[in-house]
Amino acid sequence: MATAKAIATQIQNDILAGHFDPTLNRYRLEPKAATKAQPKTLLELWDAWVDYLDLPPATQANHHKWFRRMIAKANPGLSNTNWLTHSNISPRTYK
């Protein structure tokens, strides 16, 4: 409660002095986290997607790990799909 009152007092003083920060960054206890950078490669996108899924470690260690290795080996760009169609992989893997 004391922290909230101190911040409120600081905001009031800044308004009166004409130095109010409308972004409120000045009054945060911790700086607002920067937005995550957009993935630049398919591997970065894959890792972000798998993290987002919040999968059990066993699932990540099996199926997802193997596909990640294929992506890392080919090292394609974010929108490049030719690597997948020209890879020598089994129909089961495509599925």
Rank of each mutant, 00 (worst) to 15 (best):
M1L: 10
K5Q: 14
T9F: 03
Q12T: 09
N13P: 00
L16R: 14
L16H: 10
G18N: 09
G18Y: 08
H19G: 07
D21N: 15
P22Q: 12
T23M: 05
L24H: 04
L24T: 09
R28N: 01
L29F: 00
K32H: 11
K36Q: 13
K36M: 10
A37H: 05
A37D: 11
K40T: 14
T41Y: 02
T41L: 00
L42M: 14
L42R: 12
L42C: 07
L43G: 05
L43D: 10
E44M: 02
L45E: 07
D47M: 01
A48D: 02
A48W: 00
D51I: 11
Y52A: 15
Y52C: 10
Y52K: 15
L55M: 04
P56H: 10
T59M: 06
N62I: 08
N62L: 11
H63I: 12
H64Y: 14
W66I: 12
R68W: 05
R69L: 04
R69G: 08
M70R: 14
M70Y: 07
I71R: 05
A72V: 03
P76S: 12
P76W: 03
P76V: 05
G77C: 09
S79D: 15
W83E: 02
L84D: 06
L84R: 13
T85Q: 04
T85L: 10
N88S: 13
N88H: 13
I89H: 13
S90M: 10
P91V: 06
K95Y: 14
K95C: 11
